[in-house]
Design a binder for these strands. Sequence first.
DNA 1: GTCTATATCCTGATAGAC
DNA 2: GTCTATCAGGATATAGAC
Lengths: 206, 206
Amino acid sequence: MNTTEKTQIDTRTRIIATTTDMFLQQGFSGTSMSAIAKSCNMTKASLYHHFDGKEDLFIACVTYGYTAALDALAKIADDAALSAEEKLRAGVGALYTTMITAPVGRMSPLIAEVSRAFPNVARSFHAEYIEPQRATLWRIVEEGQSSGAFRDFDKNQFFHIAFGPMVTLSLSREMFATFDDLDDHFPVDELRDGHADVLLKMLAAE
Amino acid sequence: MNTTEKTQIDTRTRIIATTTDMFLQQGFSGTSMSAIAKSCNMTKASLYHHFDGKEDLFIACVTYGYTAALDALAKIADDAALSAEEKLRAGVGALYTTMITAPVGRMSPLIAEVSRAFPNVARSFHAEYIEPQRATLWRIVEEGQSSGAFRDFDKNQFFHIAFGPMVTLSLSREMFATFDDLDDHFPVDELRDGHADVLLKMLAAE
DNA sequence: GTCTATATCCTGATAGAC
DNA sequence: GTCTATCAGGATATAGAC
């Protein structure tokens, strides 16, 4: 990799980081290309040199961090030292971290915002992020089932109860971000632990 | 009520219905006042005669149907012929209907979209819709607890597991509305019934 | 790769006649 | 209560020099 390529990548990454913050703060439509360029200390024309347009830039922001989030979950699923119950609890913890603090998770409401205008954004989000995540989590459940620790449970039903609360928590925290008592209303750690308890009890073999 | 007042209300209602559809289809920023006026077969100036501005119109759309949704749940909570378990199941059913099919529920992602620009929209949504809904549902739980049918359970924790899946389901269905196999991915009736089972088992006295 | 300058269009909102 | 006409500003995006 020569110097030019490295600089290109750094600039792109820098733009993505700045833009992600702005999208999360002000939404997709609320963030203009002019404002992004200004925050990146460059002109609009330069910005358009690095990204084809606003949609392209948005996709780059959403996609950035996909792999890190998926790898973290996969690592837990593959950890031979953990039991299925321990994996499930750790996996739920990792998912909460991703959804509440990582851009990928916090961007979900934004994806809903743009999904009608750019349906392919929603499609790729589903195919490249949602589905792999569900698949990895389900591997953990199946392992517990074959070892006799977990009972049979409908797959979609499990995802409904497993992902529902954490996605809603993320949405709520974005929605009520202006509340000064946000953590009293939505205490992440406490809700996460209680949620894991419910899931484990729900799956426990009789 | 004289004729003029009646006409005013009808026009307002007509605008609200049309606008709600457009907001749900294209988002808040994706729907312009010009487009709304055209869909209502009037000019922008006439539209501005009925509503102070876009924010005002949005609030009217979100608010429309509040009372109907809250009354439906309250009626179940007050039904003397039902046991706490039956009330909970019926209440969950009513909430699913509201969130999946009624504008109030489907608008949630939109409220997240505009909440940074108009924080008071989020505040009033929380105070006038979320809180009363939680309060009514919690009355049902408390009734079951005092009759000995339900065990003790942390309030926020319960809401986390109760509302999370249904809000996420609504969000997902808006997000992936362009999928042709939407009902295969997110079958409402099935997920609702399974969710109610989980909640009842979770609350069941030992 | 970054700049200045510009094109083109659309936005929310209003004034004032009827 | 509805209209025509218009405002001032901002949106995305591009052309072409350096």
